[in-house]
């Protein structure tokens, strides 16, 4: 699953949203890092709809403009959860390894310090 697809699905978890609403929510969720262009957004929506992960919810006309809302399907929610668990597992493993590395470095530093202390001490 690509990052834009992941973020679009996440944007639809709490409520159905229309095209621009999804783009805005994706920007919020990514901390302003991902700006989905309209062509890109609809490409992602097409793929997610083809997979049955999102579907049209309702249509509204506001200020003479059509807004079509999209909602997350149960299948889409399952796919998103699987992906989220996979990403969280990856992140957890990365953090564990980094802590281990940090610990090893600290241990090595202390050991080296003690070794140097003994070598430089009185005979």
């Amino acid at each position: 699953m690509t990052e834009p697809a992941f973020l679009v699905l996440t944007a639809l978890v709490d409520e159905p949203r229309h095209g621009y609403g999804i783009a805005q929510e994706v920007e919020r969720l990514s901390g302003g890092r991902v700006h989905l262009k309209i062509g890109t957004l609809y490409g992602v929506l097409d793929r997610l709809a083809a997979d049955g992960w999102v579907e049209a919810d309702r249509e509204e006309v506001r200020q003479g403009r059509l807004r079509r809302y999209y909602r997350l399907t149960d299948e889409g929610a399952r796919a998103l959860e699987e992906e989220a668990v996979r990403l969280a597992d990856n992140a957890r493993r990365a953090v564990e390894r980094l802590r281990l590395r940090q610990g090893l470095r600290q241990g090595l530093g202390q050991g080296l310090g003690q070794g140097l202390g003994q070598a430089g001490g009185p005979a």
């Binding site: 095209g19 621009y20 403009r65």
Partner: peptide, 9 residues
């Protein structure tokens, strides 16, 4: 709907 999204943006 794409025009609406463009114009909102």
């Amino acid at each position: 709907e794409m025009v609406a999204a463009f114009m909102d943006g």
